[in-house]
Design a protein around this nucleic acid. Structure first.
Lengths: 195, 195
DNA sequence: CATGTATTAATACCAGGTACTAAATCAGTA
DNA sequence: TACTGATTTAGTACCTGGTATTAATACATG
């Protein structure tokens, strides 16, 4: 006996979830029905065509990857005086927040502040050594976070940087970052060579 | 005078990098040349057609996004005892490191630890209140970071969570996170309603 | 002016569809 | 058994965003 319509549609839905790259033709073969039936099913299930599915995926991922990964720095550094102070702006977008409550994940605010603190160091390469941070109130979707960083102490290769992040003038995040310049000989990767 | 071929191709290349979703038609308009010229240019430049570009993006970024962004959590949480302890594993990939020295950005290790600390809280929604962290030695491309989190203090809605991240048994990151459960009435977004 | 490069035009074809109409097949019921 | 409605299949026209190929045209330059 053939599969019922309901059952087939359930399977189709699942199959497209598992592999969004399936064409109707492939799907028709798998279900042993005609291609038209598959198309009617997609219509009823509100599943868009292959190209649209792929495009959607690419679009989403594109934005997110761009905004979070490709950049070395999180947030726009709009002002920078090396070894002295700097300002960074970050608008909270949907890829920064918890889906359930639209609140920015902690590490996003941290990342903005950390990126800024590291950028302040007048050196080829700088790393964060330690930090003390406080999340004073949650940042929400759409809000614009402005982080101000100031170098408090300067000692050879170590800097103490204070960062305060505000939304509409209200402090939402505060942190003290101890950042250090990386010496060239420390740069050598774990697997020796290079020098 | 019209643009030279070289100059046009340079621009086309850049334009497709900036926006892979451009059709040849759009590009032809922008460059004020025929669509055929654009196609010849793509051929010479080895740029594939729109659908192929999009498909590639969708395929590649599918995994990456899965591993970093779509999830609410950074790192694989392999063990979790609510309100008690947990373990998370994160392999340092190229999207986590500074291009110049292959060292993981500080906020990546922080994000792993923070995600884990927040996940520990036995509540619908939890946020980080504050943290003190130390980056003991840099984590490099390819290394596997194993974060162990333990709840040290439990006080009503606030928890103190200690996280130690190790690579091959060596501590690379250490942090104390003060995490709190979010009450329902604090959940309401800035723009009222919902309830 | 001829020659070569660059550009444009025109045509046939492709995948993977949408939209629509119509026919065929079932399944259940009066 | 015949009718009815749902389901399935078929067929056609059309769409986008191309490829592939051939041919014509424009432009510069020796």
């Amino acid at each position: 006996m053939r599969m019922s319509k309901r059952e087939r549609q359930r399977r189709i839905k699942q199959a497209f979830m598992d592999d969004p790259f399936l064409t109707d033709e492939e799907m028709a073969k798998r279900c042993k029905v005609s291609i038209q039936t598959i198309r009617l099913d997609r219509l009823e299930l509100g599943i868009s065509e292959l190209r649209e599915r792929i495009k959607h995926m690419a679009e989403n991922h594109f934005d997110r990857v761009r905004s979070l990964l490709v950049e070395e720095v999180i947030g726009d550094i709009v002002d920078l005086q090396l070894d002295h102070s700097g300002v960074s702006v970050l608008e909270i977008k949907k890829e920064h927040v918890f889906a359930r409550n639209q609140i920015a994940r902690g590490h996003i605010l941290f990342a903005q502040a950390n990126s800024l603190a590291v950028a302040l160091v007048n050196s080829e390469v700088a790393l964060t050594g330690s930090a003390e941070i406080r999340f004073i109130r949650p940042a929400r979707l759409g809000e614009k976070c402005i982080a101000h960083a100031t170098v408090i102490k300067k000692k050879a290769s170590r800097l103490q940087v204070d960062v305060k992040t505000k939304i509409n003038g209200e402090v939402v995040f505060q942190g003290i970052f101890y950042v250090y310049r990386l010496e060239d000989d420390e740069l050598v990767p774990a697997n020796e060579e290079e020098h």
